[in-house]
C-alpha cells in the first residue's frame, strides 16, 4: 500500500518553528547588545587585551550577521515553502551561486583570521624586552607560587629533590646556589603598573594553567617546559588568577591574585619580602 500525502499538515508546525527561530535570534541579539552582567567580560588592563577585544568585536559582527541571516532565512523558508498544495520548484542548484558563496566565505573567514594575528603576534611572536621584570610562575596541585629573583636579579637553581612545602621550600630552590639565597617566593603575583612583566610559566607535577581574564591571556603550565608570557598592565587593581587546566580533585580551588600596584608600592612589596626571606 502506498500512502499518498498531499499535505504536510497544518500551517501550525512551520509557524511554530519559524517563531522559535525568530525568538532565538531576538533573545541572542538582545543579550549581546544589552551587556547583561553575566554575559560580559571585564575591561582589559593591557593594550594587547584591548586589541584582542577589538578582534573579538569584529568576529562578533561577522558571525552575528551570518547567524541572523541564516536563522531568519531558515525561518522564512520553513514558513514560506510549507506544503500548501503547490508544486516544488525543480532545480539542481547553480554553479554561479556556489562560486559566489564559496569565494565570499573564503575572503570573509580567511580575512578575519589573518587580521586576528596582529594581537597574537604581539603576545607570542615577539619576546619580552630584556629589561622586563622576570617572575617565575609554578603550578602544583593545587597552588600557584610566584618567584622573584631578588636583588641579584638571578633565579637560584632548582633541585626537585629539595622540594618540601612543609619546610618552606615548595619550589626546591637549591640551598647550595648563592643566586637562590635572595629569591622571593610568594603565593600572589604583584607587579608594578605600566612595566613589562615576563612570566616564566612551569609546573612541578601535572598540567596547570595561568589565566587572568583582564589580561586576556591563558597559558598552560606544561611539565618539562618553561613557557614565557609577557604583558604590561596599565590599570592598578587586584585581579583573580585561576587555573583553567584540569589538574586533579582540587582544580577549582587553585586560585590566586594578580596585584597591579604603583611603582612605590612595588618597591615596598619587594623590600618587605626581601626582609622576610
Amino acid at each position: 500500500m502506498r500512502i499518498r500525502k498531499r499535505n504536510g499538515g497544518s500551517a501550525a508546525t512551520p509557524a511554530l518553528l519559524s517563531l522559535i527561530l525568530v525568538v532565538l535570534v531576538g533573545v541572542t541579539v538582545y543579550v549581546f547588545a544589552s551587556n547583561l552582567p553575566w554575559a560580559v567580560r571585564p575591561a582589559p588592563i593591557t593594550s594587547v587585551g584591548a586589541e584582542i577585544d577589538h578582534q573579538y568585536d569584529l568576529t562578533l559582527a561577522v558571525t552575528a550577521t551570518v547567524f541572523i541571516l541564516s536563522q531568519l532565512g531558515l525561518a522564512f523558508a520553513v514558513f514560506k515553502f510549507r506544503d500548501h498544495g503547490q508544486k516544488a520548484h525543480f532545480t539542481r542548484g547553480s554553479n554561479t551561486l556556489e562560486a559566489i558563496w564559496t569565494t565570499a566565505t573564503i575572503v570573509l573567514f580567511l580575512g578575519l583570521g589573518l587580521m586576528g594575528h596582529k594581537a597574537w603576534a604581539e603576545v607570542r611572536f615577539t619576546p619580552a624586552s630584556p629589561d622586563a621584570i622576570q617572575v617565575e610562575v609554578t603550578g602544583n596541585q593545587f597552588v600557584f607560587n610566584f618567584r622573584y629573583p631578588g636583588p641579584d636579579g638571578k633565579f637560584g637553581k632548582l633541585d626537585p629533590k629539595q622540594i618540601s612545602a612543609s619546610t618552606g621550600n615548595p619550589l626546591g630552590i637549591d640551598a647550595n646556589d648563592p643566586a637562590g639565597k635572595d629569591d622571593i617566593v610568594v603565593p600572589t603575583l604583584t607587579v608594578p603598573v605600566n612595566h613589562e612583566v615576563n612570566l616564566l610559566i612551569r609546573s612541578q607535577d601535572v598540567i596547570h594553567n595561568f589565566y587572568v581574564r583582564e589580561l586576556r591571556i591563558q597559558q598552560d603550565a606544561m611539565p618539562g617546559m618553561v613557557v614565557p608570557l609577557h604583558f604590561t598592565a596599565n590599570t592598578i587593581g587586584q585581579y583573580e588568577v585561576v587555573c583553567t587546566q584540569l589538574c586533579g580533585l582540587g582544580h577549582s580551588r587553585m586560585h590566586s591574585y594578580l596585584n597591579v600596584v604603583s611603582d612605590a608600592d612595588y618597591e615596598t612589596f619587594l623590600k618587605q619580602q626581601a626582609a622576610g626571606q
Binding site: 499535505n7 531558515l74 515553502f81 516544488a88 520548484h89 547553480s94 558563496w101
Partner: peptide, 19 residues
C-alpha cells in the same frame, strides 16, 4: 558554509512536509 547554503537552497522553493 557551502553545506549550510546548499541546505537552505534545498528548502528554497520546496514543498516542505513537516514530518
Amino acid at each position: 558554509a557551502i553545506k549550510t547554503f546548499n541546505w537552505l537552497g534545498t528548502l528554497w522553493g520546496g514543498k516542505i512536509q513537516f514530518k
